Simulated assay, not measured.
Amino acid sequence: MGPQEFAYLLQGLAWTLVLTAMGFVGGIAFGVIVALMRVSSVTWIRLIAIGWIGLFQGTPLLMQLFVAYFGLPLLGFNLPAWAAVGIALTAHASAFLGDIWRGAIQAVPRGQTEAAMALGLHTRSLMIDVIMPQAFKLSLPATVGFLVQLLKGTSLAAIVGFIELTRAGSIVSNQIYRPLLVFGVVGAMYFAMCWPLSLWGRNIERRMSAGVSR
């Protein structure tokens, strides 16, 4: 495998990072909404969030990619491949992150809410200034863990023909007929991205556990 093939893999790696960023940032934006809807006191709002979470957690990411890539054009949305994949990853991430943050919000001690209400804080101020900062800290290890899963999940975009790292590896492998070498390099690239994130998540969890035990 020469410099040209390695450069092609790096281009695929760049697209993997772009897709991960799109899905994660979009998932954060919509995940916050899903989490707040999930803990809402209004029944129909809560049911919509439960349905959204159940739909995307209960179906494979591969199927979601197929629906976004082939289904959206049938509805008149002629999107480039990267946009369709980004939409699917965003919807997928919003369901998982929304559920993670829902659990974190509900894990905040009820005494915090009661104390804030006793001080006369409105519901919006209670959520933004009291509940969400604590919930964010509680959810950080699980959020980082999901980021690792999302990064690896971008490899499924190869199924719809998008050239990210895995697809780039397949193309290079077909050109030089050395699949073990090529996918060894591809695997090393995924490892180099995922392992530091996993260590970071464990470190955060360990520090939080140490703080709780004191």
Rank of each mutant, 00 (worst) to 15 (best):
Q4T: 11
Q4A: 14
A7I: 00
Y8K: 10
Y8T: 11
L9K: 11
Q11S: 09
Q11F: 00
G12L: 02
L13A: 13
L13Y: 05
T16Q: 08
L17C: 12
L17N: 10
L17F: 13
A29L: 15
G31P: 03
I33W: 12
A35S: 13
R38N: 08
V39I: 15
V39S: 14
S41Y: 13
V42N: 14
V42W: 12
R46W: 12
I48V: 15
G51N: 10
T59H: 06
L61Q: 10
M63C: 12
V67M: 13
L72C: 08
L72D: 03
G76A: 09
P80N: 11
P80V: 12
A81H: 05
A81Q: 09
A81T: 14
G86N: 03
L89I: 01
T90F: 00
H92T: 06
A93N: 07
F96G: 00
G98T: 01
G98A: 04
D99W: 04
D99P: 02
G103A: 10
A104D: 03
A107Q: 10
A107W: 11
A107V: 10
V108W: 04
V108M: 03
R110P: 07
Q112R: 08
Q112E: 14
A116D: 11
A116W: 08
A116E: 08
L119Y: 14
G120C: 07
G120N: 11
H122M: 09
T123F: 15
R124A: 12
M127G: 02
I128V: 15
I128M: 13
V130Y: 12
I131H: 07
I131N: 07
M132N: 04
P133Y: 04
A135I: 10
F136Y: 08
F136T: 09
S139P: 08
P141A: 02
P141S: 05
A142T: 03
T143S: 13
G145A: 11
G153M: 06
T154D: 03
S155T: 06
L156P: 02
L156T: 00
I159T: 13
G161E: 12
G161L: 03
R167K: 15
R167P: 07
A168E: 06
G169T: 02
V172G: 00
Q175K: 05
Y177R: 01
P179V: 00
P179K: 09
P179E: 05
L180Q: 04
G184S: 01
V186H: 01
G187L: 02
G187H: 01
A188H: 04
M189D: 02
C194D: 01
W195Y: 15
P196I: 05
S198R: 02
S198F: 03
R202N: 15
N203Y: 14
N203W: 14
R206I: 12
M208C: 04
M208K: 14
A210S: 15
V212K: 15
R214Y: 15
R214T: 15
